[in-house]
Design a protein around this nucleic acid. Structure first.
Length: 144
DNA sequence: GCCAACGTTGGC
DNA sequence: GCCAACGTTGGC
């Protein structure tokens, strides 16, 4: 099983929104990603992989954990390219649980063990990888 | 609101 | 295929 981190601006779609959807038995299609590196990460995801839900711009913190419930499939909001091919894909997710104590970007940057985290090194990448060691540490920092 | 990082576009 | 110009993301 692999670990990931996915960003969303909470005024557009927050972790609480994902929790509400999950409680209704719905899944969230992680649509709208238009970056090849981020898309490739989603294509590498497997059902059951877990991902941190990061609030960008507002909050700048990891709010909770979600699970990949469907592997990459065509993004329903994406247009086809000139050849009529699907270029953009995305996974579906559901909420697992919030972090009792959200982990802020400032805390992450102040933690030497997290200096290699892709969130820090590739700050514009909206879907990034998290190593198992980083995942465990971030969960601990979040009060789990 | 500014700016750094970086991806994309288009001229050559 | 290179590179300058431009657009977007996201932290500050």
């Amino acid at each position: 099983m692999a670990y990931w981190l996915m960003k969303s601006e909470p005024d557009v779609f927050s972790f609480d929104d994902l929790v509400a959807k999950t409680e209704r038995g719905e899944v969230e299609e992680w649509h709208g990603v238009r970056n090849y590196a981020a898309r490739n990460n989603m294509k590498a995801m497997a059902v059951g992989d877990e991902a941190f839900f990061y609030h960008s711009n507002i909050g700048k913190e990891i709010a909770g954990i979600m699970r990949v419930v469907a592997a990459a499939h065509p993004d329903s909001t994406a247009e086809l390219n000139a050849k009529g091919e699907v270029v953009w894909e995305c996974v579906d997710t559901q909420a697992v649980k919030p972090l009792p104590r959200p982990v802020t970007l400032a805390e992450i940057k102040a933690t030497p063990e997290l200096s290699e985290l892709e969130l820090v090194k590739l700050s514009r990448l909206s879907v990034s990888k998290v190593s198992e060691a980083e995942w465990t540490l971030l969960c601990n920092m979040g009060g789990l």
